[in-house]
Computed example of a mutant assay.
Amino acid sequence: MALQLMKLLITASTTTNVVPSPQKFFYVTAAETAAGSTLTVDAASFFQDDGAAATALPALTSSNSYFNVYINGVLQQQGNSTYTPGATTIGSLAFAVPAGGSPILQNTSVVLEVVNYAPASTTTVAT
């Protein structure tokens, strides 16, 4: 019998599920923030979706997360915001009100939305 080349037949398929984990935090301004100033909100000043006081702002997962800031229901440009995760006195949101613009008035709603993704993959190999 002649020699033969023996090959393995292997197939594989991968399924990836990307599951978002959104969290929303709410704040109502206590005073006016003038144009050219920065509104800084400590983690403990926010309240959560269920109305409970927030104790910490979540960490952003590297390359799998983002945050949005809404002021008076309007999505704001990312470059005006600085987000720092963590507990009270560490965690905060700082929003730089553009100079020459309108101030943020007292009793204005501020919504912080933090979305982290938790991708999970499974691979099935058949021989």
Rank of each mutant, 00 (worst) to 15 (best):
L3H: 11
T29F: 03
A30N: 13
T16V: 15
T15H: 07
F46C: 04
A31E: 13
V18H: 08
D49V: 10
L3R: 09
A43H: 01
F47R: 11
V28W: 00
V28S: 12
A44P: 00
V41L: 02
P58D: 07
Q4N: 08
Q4K: 11
A12K: 13
G51R: 08
A56V: 03
T11W: 02
T38V: 14
D50Q: 07
D50Y: 05
Q48F: 00
L3A: 13
L9H: 12
A43R: 02
S13W: 01
Y27G: 02
T16Q: 13
T14I: 08
A30Q: 14
A35L: 10
G36C: 11
T38K: 10
F25V: 04
A43D: 03
L9T: 13
I10L: 14
L39D: 04
T11K: 09
D42A: 06
T38R: 08
K7M: 12
T14P: 03
L5Y: 07
A44E: 10
F47S: 09
I10V: 15
T55F: 03
T38I: 09
V41G: 02
T14R: 13
I10W: 01
T55N: 08
A30C: 00
D50W: 06
P22K: 10
Q4W: 02
S21Y: 10
L57V: 03
A43N: 02
Q48H: 06
A35T: 12
T16I: 15
E32N: 11
K7F: 13
P20D: 10
A43S: 05
L8E: 14
T55C: 01
F47T: 14
A53G: 14
Y27C: 03
P58Y: 05
M6F: 08
F26E: 01
T29D: 04
G51C: 08
A43T: 03
F26H: 10
N17W: 06
A35W: 07
A54K: 02
L3D: 12
I10K: 15
A52M: 09
T15P: 00
L39C: 06
F26L: 05
T33H: 06
L3I: 03
L57M: 03
P20S: 11
T40P: 02
L9E: 13
A44W: 00
F25Q: 06
T14F: 03
T15E: 08
A34P: 04
S37R: 12
A54C: 15
L39W: 04
N17V: 15
T55I: 08
K24N: 15
